[in-house]
Design a protein around this nucleic acid. Sequence first.
RNA 1: UGUCUGAUGGUGUAACUGGCAACACGCCUGAUUUUGAUUCAGGAGAGUCCAGGUUCGAGCCCUGGUCGGGCAACCA
Length: 553
Amino acid sequence: MEEKGLNFLEEIVENDLKSGKYQSIVTRFPPEPNGYLHLGHAKSICLNFGLALKYGGKTNLRFDDTNPVTEETEYVEGIKGDVRWLGFNWTNELYASDYFGKLYEFAIVLIKKGLAYVDDSTSEEIATQKGTPIKPGTATAYRSRRVEENLKVFAEMKEGKYKDGEKVLRAKVDLASPNMHMRDPIIYRIKHAHHHRTGDTWCIYPMYDFAHGQSDAIENVTHSICTLEFIPHRELYDWFIANLEIYPSHQYEFARLNLTYTIMSKRKLLQLVNDKNVSGWDDPRMPTIAGMRRRGYTAESIREFCDKIGIAKRENLIDIGLLEFCVREHLNKISLRRMVVSDPVKVVITNYPEGKSEMLPSENNTEDHSTGSRDIPFSRELYIEKDDFMEVPAKKYFRLAPGQMVRLKSAYIIKCEQVVKDSSGDVTELHCTYVPESKSGSDVSGINVKGVIHWVSVPHALEVEVRLYDRLFQVEDLNKIEDDFKNHLNPDSLKIISKAYAEPVLADGKDEDRYQFMRIGYFHRDPDSRPGKLVFNRTVTLRDMWAKEEKKG
RNA sequence: UGUCUGAUGGUGUAACUGGCAACACGCCUGAUUUUGAUUCAGGAGAGUCCAGGUUCGAGCCCUGGUCGGGCAACCA
């Protein structure tokens, strides 16, 4: 019985609980509604909700909507759907914008304490006055504005007397601080913009640093968890809490997720959407929750992935193979087996009567016998995969070849008697004979074959579209490139097979069904499907040892 | 040049807080298999960034380096 080690945050929480610092914990997941959630958010969601679930506590979903120009209701709805789909329920649905009134009062408290002032400088002036990491900042004349005047001008800012950029409210902290964030940070700016929730009520909006910690405090968040790049903000976070004398929430930081062959930046993902490099936020190639869901990933497999990658403070680059392992592991247990031929060659069973057909039973999932079986029609003409025939077989190749035998899955053993080619020498048909006594389930032929291949009866075949996805980028570590990330897009990330042949039962599937197209991969029906034309997305391929063997030559 | 932060097999995460470096993915063998899938059995692979120090004993403690990442948006 080995106890698996706790991550550093679990350790902090356990200690806080043990010491009696808290009776129970409160966490929050605080997305800005300016885009859809991606896998990196999933890591944060699993962490925040997971902590509260494990140690008994609450988790709020809080929208950090302090910048009206980038935020939209569409994103709010998308985010809620994604969190729910991942399997988590929030205690409260909250918005930083709900606190705009309170935040405004906090600002007045600071002004009255002489800890905030209105600055009329331009953004360029403020930037230069800030100095550099090695050169202290310098004060502007406005820094010594009297309290009464600050109060008056700040109220005028709120009333809309000034234009965007004309004035800002700054906290009076320390212009010489080695931490740039402490050099009199801007806490309120003027934006005459429509907010997705507060409409035109406000024309001044708090900055992140003056909203986040305060929101945490208002909600009595005990553990406010964010990513590493916010470490320098922590000092300010604590400074506001101390000077406002509000609930002392604490900020902790962990390393964000990086995945090979993909990007995990909302800004860049938005660019792909806007530039039409992908069909939308839910394009199955996107590392977004919506995209992965459409592609066929299960929530369970994503949660498993988040659990496996762990939580730590060092930078990491996780092999996308681990994510694929997690889906395969789950899909193997739940998916219905189906036979689909994606790149066909016709097989004619010359000794099978013309016009005859029979239904052959086949298990839906040998991993789960409760799923039962379905019947598959068999007839004289079949499609098999081009790959499953080699005129000149490679070594260790045990599929179909001239004179060779294979078993058709759940059906008969066949032998390739003749290869029919067209004028240009391409194989058009394979003439085979079948062994009647080799029928699956009642095989008395005594023949043992190594190869088993999938097939579909030509007259019964259902035509479907199949979409094959590959990695979005060609470079393993997108953080290490120096030029535009779009230069590294994989031109072959989507391959559409508009005409694949499937066994007929595939038409009866439900939305939530997951399939394994035998020997090909895991698939999921796409919402683009129409009654006459079903579309399936490949979630992930099957592991393929033969491909490896082939490569070895 | 300042400051914050980190460093453990190829990757990621652990190591009862000082006691023989473990788990997962990946990789390699072999067995089973009516999916070259799954499953099962086994294996290779790090001596913990470097140099000192404390200690019977250091991945964990101390000192000094090296290297990586963050920080100077009226973004979050």
